[in-house]
Structures are given as structure tokens and as C-alpha cells.
Write a protein that binds this DNA or RNA. Sequence first.
DNA 1: ACCCTGACTTAGCATCGACCAG
DNA 2: CTGGTCGATGCTAAGTCAGGGT
Length: 475
Amino acid sequence: MFLLLFYDYVKEKQEERKKRSKEEKEKEKEEKAEIKEKYGYAIIDGHREAVGNFTVEPPGLFLGRGDHPKAGMVKARIYPEQVTLNLGEKATVPPCPVEGHNWGEIVHNHEVTWVASWRENINNQNKYVLFSAQSSVRGKSDRSKFETARRLKKFVKKIRKDYESSLKEKDDFLCQRATAMWVIDHLALRVGNDKGKDQADTVGCCSLRKEHVKLHKPRSIEFDFLGKDSMRYHNTVEVPEVIFKNFQRFHKGKKKGEQLFDKLNPAQLNAHLQTLMKGLTAKVFRTYNASQTMQQELLKLSVEESKKMSVEERILFFNRSSVQVAVLCNHQRSVSKTHSVQMEKLDKQIEDTKTLIKEMKDHLARLKAGKTPKERGKDENGEDLKAFSTNPDTVQKRIDALEDKIRKILIKKEEKDNLKEVSTSTSKVNYIDPRVSLAWCIKHDVPIQKIFSKTMRTKFAWAIHDVQANNNYEF
DNA sequence: ACCCTGACTTAGCATCGACCAG
DNA sequence: CTGGTCGATGCTAAGTCAGGGT
């Protein structure tokens, strides 16, 4: 009863919002901008920088992703007394905007980047007001992330040698560690920390369980599990014999529910990675792998070839390259509600074009036979359709062009359908070194706004600067 | 060694809004 | 001008990983 009422209430509110007039929307937008101007910035080291989330999260029903044990719990309202502010010693404390209330603690912590924090009641975790992705603080750490991944490129030979030499270890821990490194290096899986019973059951490399892999002789492994955000990772990979044997070994004698890498945990794996390269952790492999893949894909287009292509065709090539990365990282999206409608529209375009071709072929046959052309009839609006040319060559050319059009629509349709579940934005924002993309734009004469939106260009200001200094940038 | 927690990065979905065809 | 489409942006959940405590 309560749920139904709540659902109706929310739906009603949504409908109300949709119905707002232009003026109301305009006014709301202005008010929002005013609030952002007032609360959306903080001064750090003398620079005024935007903070990403300057409001606390409103109360509501927690949903979570996938099969979450806490779905439906009430997320409580946050009051100013629960909010800690992290300010400079000399900074004036901003007045509390909620009448009759006051801030909780005021701290002066120089070791962290958050300006405010509070604790949330669902998972009892801290939430933070952090500088936005476009701020220079975040830009600096973004850059250093990619620099670490670039260092991995130099160390990767040595690291592969290290784990390859341990793949046949008798010691379970060493063998599991080496095998996990192989998996993280080759399949770009997340490390997979242990999770509590009060969270959705999702896994990464170290937390893979017996039921998540199927072994197909002679040496294929079928991975099928729910990863971060309960996204399904389903991939059958042909692996080297030693890897296959190791998986057989970790599989053997275990029951459903038992971890394959039962002697290994992420902390141990990361500790070992640190000994091979300072600053190396499991997640660096994803960044490295993504950036490296993008660079390799982009290199497949030579300047000579791209000179013959239109800018649109070059962008298409770029987008197809980023799809490779998204597939590698298993970045997915749910199929759009209008996907099937879009598909049908393309089908109709094809059908209409086919009908037209047929009509033109008849017309051409009549021309060649010396018969008088048929009347073409009327379109759906009752207008007379334009008569076909009486020149057979012109008609034939038109038919050829239409057949080409069909081929293009078919390709477009297939591409659209293939990519309906692939999301390229996540890898673009988090994994691909933006300097790789920017250097490619310069090399192939593609305006950068074609590949990076305004916010992305601000976020990657550091990268634009880097590439201006070195437009032959190599990851 | 292991567990817990704080801080930060990574993630997909909902909504917004710019642009385009009709 | 309008309604539909799709990329951009907002939101916050869900990961990673280090450091401290036991």
C-alpha cells in the first residue's frame, strides 16, 4: 500500500515537472545558477575551483544496482549538524544556509581534498563534497594516473617475465598470484575485493568463484559473472595451456561458492606489484591496457589514408577504435527504450528504397522497350510524385545510387545493433589517456570538439597543454 | 596476517537541452 | 514552431587501495 502510494506520488511529481512552462523552467535554471555561484566553488591554494556536488543527497528510497540486499531502505535526510566542513585555519566559516541549524564539526585537514563530509545511513559510509572533475586538483591527479600507466608500459616486459616464471609453481599462493596477474594483464579484470553479505553479490579476479568459470577443453575458459554495478561479464577466451591447467587446478576439489584464488587476496597481489614497480596496483593494468589499445587501434589509420577521407569518416574510425576499448573494459549500457523503433525505421527506409528501385527498374524496362512511362501516382500527402527521367542512363545511375544507399543503411543498422549495449563514454572519461586522442586529432586534422565535449575539454585542459608542447605524443 | 574504514576513482542511469527534420 | 533524437551533464552507487588497529 505504502509502496504503491509512494510510486504514484513520485510519478505524479515527475509529470508535474514535465508540464512546467518555458518561463518556469527559465526561472528555475536561473535560481540554480545563482545557488551554484554562491555555493558551488571553493578556494584552494588561492584558486577558485568548482566543486562537483555541493548539496547533500536528498532523502529517498535506496535502490542500489542489481540484486541489492538493502534495496528499499529509507535513505535519511541530512541536517547541517551532521556535516563536517574542512576549511583553512584562517577561512571564515560560511554561514549555515538552513535556518535554525548549524554546522557540525569544523576541521582543518590539509591531507585530504574534500571540503565537506557527512555520513550516510544505508551503508554507514562517508560522503564527500569534492572538487569537480574540471578542477585543477583533479586534473593533476588524473595526469599522474596516466603517467603511472605509462610507466607500466616500460615495466610490463619485466612484470610478464616475473609472473610467467611462476605459473608452474607448486606453491598454491605463488601459482595463484601469477595466474591472477595473467588474468588482470590480459583480460583487464578488476582486482575483486571481498564484499559483505549486505552488498550485491558481484566479483572481480580474486573473488571469482568456481561457478563463474567453465573450462572447455582443450584450452578455452568461459567467464560468466556479475562484475561492478552487477554488469555481466561473459567472455570465452582461448588461453595458454599453462593458464588452462592452473584453472583446472584451482577448480578441482572445490564446491560451488568457493573462491578459485582462495590463497590470494588483493592486498597481497598489490603488495607484490609494488615490488615490481613503485606505484603499481591492479587497476593500473586497466588504464594501461585501455590507453595502449586505443593507441594501437588509432595507428591503423595512416595519414595518407585519412587524407582521402572526410572528417566524418575519420570520426567514425575514431569511434570504432574507442568501441574496442569499451569492449575490453566491459563497459555496458542498457538498451535504449527506442532501440527497436529505431531499427524498424531503418527497415522501413530499406523497404521504401527497395520499392522505389523496383518501380524504377520497371520504368527502365519500359523505356528500353519503347513503351510510354507509367503514371507514378500520389504520395501519402496526396501530392503528385515527380516523374522519372526519360534518359535511361540517368535512371540507371539513380538505381545504382539507391542500391548504394541500401548498403549504407544496412551497415548503419548492423553497427547500431551491435553497439546497443556498448558504452564508450566510461573509457573515454576514465581510461584512455586523452593525449593519445588529442595527438591523433592533430595528426589527422580533426577538430577536438568533435571528440571531446566542452566539459571534457575543461577536464582534460592539462592534456591539451601537454600535447601542444609535444604533438607527437606517444603513450 | 587480517579486518575495518577513510578517501578517492570509476560506473551506469536519468534527465536535460541543443539541434534537426518536418 | 514542434516534437523527436541523441549527446552532454547530473547524480550517486560501487568499486579500489592504503593505512591503522588488533
